[in-house]
Every structure is written in structure tokens, then in C-alpha cells.
Design a protein around this nucleic acid. Sequence first.
DNA 1: AATCCCGTTCACTCAGATCGTCACACAAGC
DNA 2: GCTTGTGTGACGATCTGAGTGAACGGGATT
Lengths: 271, 271
Amino acid sequence: MTEDTTTREAISLLQDLGLQEYEARCFIALNKLPSGTAKEIHEISDVPRTRVYDAIRVLESQGLVEVQHTSPQVYRAVSIDEATQTLRQKYDNRIETLETHLRNTDVRETDEDDQVQEVWSLTGHEAIESRTIELIDEAESEIALIVVDEDILSESLFDGLQTAADRDISLVLGGQTDAVTETLGDRLSATHVFETGLDWLTGIERDDEVAISRILLVDRETLLVGSYYPNTAGSDAKEQAVFARGLENGIVVLLRRLVTAGLPRIKDPGA
Amino acid sequence: MTEDTTTREAISLLQDLGLQEYEARCFIALNKLPSGTAKEIHEISDVPRTRVYDAIRVLESQGLVEVQHTSPQVYRAVSIDEATQTLRQKYDNRIETLETHLRNTDVRETDEDDQVQEVWSLTGHEAIESRTIELIDEAESEIALIVVDEDILSESLFDGLQTAADRDISLVLGGQTDAVTETLGDRLSATHVFETGLDWLTGIERDDEVAISRILLVDRETLLVGSYYPNTAGSDAKEQAVFARGLENGIVVLLRRLVTAGLPRIKDPGA
DNA sequence: AATCCCGTTCACTCAGATCGTCACACAAGC
DNA sequence: GCTTGTGTGACGATCTGAGTGAACGGGATT
């Protein structure tokens, strides 16, 4: 049974959503067939005929499939709207109750948190994005943001910056390219956007090396630097970031971290 | 390490959300500790110390944990808001792309769909709920709904009924108890709600047997009957439903189905 | 009525993933 | 130098799920 890419991806997605392979295949099969028997499902889904029944039972208990109790039994997938709605609700519920559980757990005391020097690293575009927004939202006096890669420009970023501006936070925005600078200026009223003079930022960018994506400095004491890690092993290029609080001498530590994290040498950019 | 219920449930939820046991335990541990080393995590999470590292790496790659690259490394969970938001977005994306894939799959022809006699069964409160709404929404002339169990009264049900009434669909609503009848009358304007005279509906209800939850008849041609299946094996009582289209003689088939599906004998209720 | 065929269920094997433990390299502190 | 403790990698044990085959039962055919 030859299988097209769409089918394979859909199966994989359903597995990510908690279904077993057979269950996923059966569901996909029933999405191609308006209705079908175990035999028909077996034929177009490559699921052993004798296991179709188990899979369907699970699918039915999840509200994704309807059963006609005739002989032979006939199965039918619920509408796509119903299916996605059901899935959404299932996961929303899970996440919601997880949230309440997390909020109910009491935090144990630990030695202390007051290290003046903290440098943390995060991975993944979404995590970095939401951390960026969070830092912007909690700014008290000043936000300095250098946008190197235009991929990081998102609606929520604009929102966060705009409300920060409305809160009378002083904004210092820089775009590394003309396009970015323009977009920033267009989207944010009453804000000055500078072209960064930091040529070394993109100057060091070569295809196989780390590329800076964003630099955010909040209240001169919290710093976040995002970068794209080159896909060393053919895997998808992940965005990484380090972020540091307490700037007494944090930048030094930060640069040290950047270097040890695989960044190319930057020769004394501050000079 | 004794473990309270909240912790166990949270771990189980995280596993349902795609994490491994170790990963889930580590994340929970980091939610109790503001920050911690591999050793500390090991001590309160029952995860072998040497495997904390793998788990944390996964968590970091999912944007749930931050790492301080000191020695020893210190780990910290992102805020609960960030975590839930990240999870939500992950699953929303999955469901969304799944939806587009499903809509892109072309439907193969099958013999025919025109069986006059269709009886389908569905399982699960959510699936039945959404099917109920769907049937109500697509009604063309008449809706008859008997609410036996008040648990099925939901906002979306009221919404659906109200818009149906606005569409000039003739509504026949019945509540099996005074409370249900009242609620229905209160929530729906310009509608008559009858007390059902069908005593056998609840008359047959004993603790260990099937209880009818709802009966819906749309346009006199589509029928849905919901019931609570007694939790035979201590599992949670699931709501089940059969629904049938094409009423030439569908009711007969339906009753046969009800009986074979495990319903108690109903002696000639129509008489 | 006996038989055959098909639908359905159950029991089983095998492979892969995960759990759990161990051995080792390395760094830091005494 | 020695000890303690962190981090990495490898290894068997265990469990889950994929895949296969036997057996049961009902309906249809002869």
C-alpha cells in the first residue's frame, strides 16, 4: 500500500497526539472512506485485519469514530470539525488541570536564590519568544532591543513593545537591516528606531556558524541574546538563547557563555 | 520518597501530554524547587541521578526548563504560565496542521451510503455532546429533546436550542425532573417545556443498570439516545449513545440495538 | 442439517523503547 | 595526591506495542 506524504504526516501527528500507530492508521483510513468495514480499513491502511477491531474500539472511546453494530460492523469517522474539537478539548482540559496542580504544589525552601550572577540558557523558538515577551512586559524603565533576524518579528512582540511604550518605558530599538528597521518604525508609533552600527553582528555570520537573532536588554540589568545554532547533524536549526540577570559584571559572564556555547570568537566588540 | 496525590496526577498528566516518566518527574521536581541541581532533583523525584541529565535535556529542548551552565549545572523550570502556554501552542499547532491534512485527503468512493437503516453508536460524554449540538444545528423543522439527566445541560446546548428557536424550528422540550424542566424553561425564551410523562424512563433506573441521559429526535427522522453505562469494572461510568437516521422503521432497529447494547428490558413502553 | 465461510476475538512472539544500574572520565576541594 | 561529587556513556532488565496465527461463533450455502 503506497502512502503519500500527507497520509504519513497525518499519522505521525496523530501519534504525537497520543494515538498508537494502528489507531492513527485506522482513523486516517476512515477519513478516506466515508464508511468502511474492518476489511476495507485493513486494505487501505496496512493494519492487520484482526487488529482493526481493537484500534477502532479505542478510537470510539475517544469519540473519534462511530460504530454501526451490524454484521459486519461498519465504522465511520466523525466529521473533521468534531474530531479536532474533541482533541482540542481533551488537551485543553489536560493542560488546565495540570496548571491547577502545578499551582497547588508548595515550593520547598532551597538554600538561596540570591546569586548575583545568573546565566541561563533556553532552547526553542517558542520558549525564547515567550521569554522575550515576558521580559518586555516586566520592564520598569528601559528596553533596548536589537532585532537581527526578521523572523523574530511577531504580533505579540509588537503588542508587548507598544504597551511598554504606553507605559512610558524608554524604548531603544535597533534593526540590523533596513527592512527590519522599517517594519519596526511602521508598527510602533512614537518610537525611535536606530540602525545598529554593530557591523560585527552580521559580519561574523557565515553559513555554517552561529547567527545572532536578537539582543534584548531590559532595565540595564536583564539581558537576553538569541542565536540560531547551525544544524550540525542535519537536524532542524534550533534557536538558542542565553539570558542573564544582574548586570554588575554579567556581560563578561555572558560573553564567556556565548563563546563556550559555540559562538565564534568576537574580537573585543566593545572597543 | 513518599508522593502525594497531586504529584502523582501531575506526573500522569504530563505523561499524557507526551513526556516520559523521568521527564515528568524532573519537571515536577523543578516546580517544587525554585532551582536545583541534578542531585537535588534526584533526591525529591526518585529519578536515578545519572538519568536526570537526559531528562532535563529533553525538557529544555521543549522550552520547559532553563539551564545554568555552571558546575554543577543548575536547572530551573520556566514559570507555570510560560509552560502551559508553550504546551497549549504545541498542541494547537499539531491539531491545526492535522486538520489541514485531513481536509486535504481525498475521499475514495465506496459502494454506497444510501442504507435506509443506519444505527451508529458513539462513546464518551464529549463526543455525544458535540453530536447533540450538531444534530440540533442542522435541524430543519422540528426538535424534540427529553433531558433525563441534568448533567447534560450545558451552555452550548442552550445556545444551540436558542438559535434553533430563532430559526423557527418547532421545539418540543421535556425534562424528566422538575429541576430540569425549570432550568430549561428559564433559559429558553418562548418555548414550551413539558414534563415528560414517561415514567418508565427513570422507573427502570437502578444503581447497577443503564440510565438514560437524553433523547433527541430531529425532524422525526434522526434519533439520538444517550445512556450512562454502569461502571462494570470499577472504571469511570461512560456515557454511551446510539443514533439513527431514517425513521421508516428505525425505532424498531433502535430498540433492538438498545437491548443488545446491554439495556434492561423495557416492556412495551409505547402501550 | 451439516458444512463452509467470514467476521471477530484471543493468545502469543518479536522488536524496540524505556527504566534502572553501573562503570568511568573529569573537575573541584581537602 | 587523594577524596568527593558531577557529568557521560554503556549495559541488561522490563515493558509496551507491532505483527501473526489459532480458535470461536454466526450466518449463508448446499
